[in-house]
Amino acid sequence: MFIDEVSHVAEKLAAVLRVGDVVALSGELGAGKTTLARAVIAALGWAGEVPSPTFNLVQDYPGLRVPVWHVDLYRLETAAEADALGLDEALFDHALLLEWPERLGAALWPEALWLRLEGAGEAARRLTWRVPDAWEGRWPPTLQH
């Protein structure tokens, strides 16, 4: 059931995603951040594999309705290390799906949509969000099936 719900949320998010958007995906290990990011990328039209960016930090998905960088900051020691990734420059022609946004601390864009996944494994899952002004009217969607 979790995968169906994530797919539904991902379709809603993909429908309103724009170039320049930052979606901060927060939650403990195993909460579903990568699952949600993969589902958004698929909903945008990517037919290929969507590997986790844990080791190379960034996966680029060009050619979609909205090109996406899927970014995993888990291995960063400091927020300053993110500067080398070129995230600000990517926002000129991509949206960012950003796992482990907490690693950026105060450097996280204030206009980022913050989605928090709670629960892992067999536990009940919960999705909450923090919506900045840039997302008003786009999020939250109507999540009815």
Rank of each mutant, 00 (worst) to 15 (best):
P67D: 15
P62L: 06
A82L: 07
A82T: 06
G105E: 08
P132F: 15
S52V: 04
A37H: 10
A10H: 00
E99M: 04
L97Y: 02
L113D: 06
A124L: 04
W139H: 06
E122K: 09
L76W: 07
A106E: 15
A79E: 15
I41V: 14
A43T: 09
L91W: 01
R138C: 05
L97R: 01
Q144N: 12
P132G: 13
L104T: 03
A43S: 12
A31Q: 09
A15G: 04
A39W: 11
P132N: 15
D133S: 13
A43L: 09
V22I: 04
T34K: 10
L76K: 08
L25Q: 10
L117Y: 14
T34Q: 07
D88P: 02
A120M: 12
W135D: 10
L64C: 13
W114L: 11
L108M: 02
L143I: 01
R126D: 15
A84P: 04
T35W: 10
L98M: 13
R38P: 11
S52K: 06
G105N: 04
L64E: 14
R126H: 14
E102A: 13
H70M: 08
E77Y: 10
S52L: 10
V66W: 02
K12M: 01
D21I: 00
V71E: 12
R38D: 11
L108Q: 03
T128P: 05
L87F: 02
G27H: 09
G30M: 07
L115T: 05
A47E: 11
Y74Q: 14
L87T: 02
E89M: 00
R116E: 15
L117E: 15
L87G: 01
S26H: 15
P62G: 08
D60Q: 05
A106C: 02
L87Q: 01
V22D: 00
T128Y: 06
A106Y: 04
A24C: 08
A82E: 13
V23Y: 04
P101M: 04
L73M: 08
L73N: 10
R125C: 07
V66R: 03
T142D: 14
D88N: 03
A112W: 01
E102Q: 10
P62A: 12
G105Q: 01
I3Y: 13
L91I: 01
G45R: 04
G86V: 03
D21V: 00
L17S: 04
V68I: 10
L127R: 12
V22E: 00
R65H: 04
L25E: 11
E111T: 08
A31R: 05
A10N: 06
G137Y: 12
E111L: 01
P67M: 11
G63F: 05
Y61L: 05
Q144V: 06
F2G: 08
D21W: 00
A90F: 02
V9K: 09
P51K: 14
E111F: 02
P51H: 13
A84G: 07
E122G: 07
P141I: 00
A107G: 05
V40Q: 12
W135I: 03
A134S: 11
G121T: 12
A31K: 14
P132T: 08
R38T: 09
W114I: 09
L13W: 01
N56P: 02
V22F: 00
E136V: 03
E28I: 07
F2A: 12
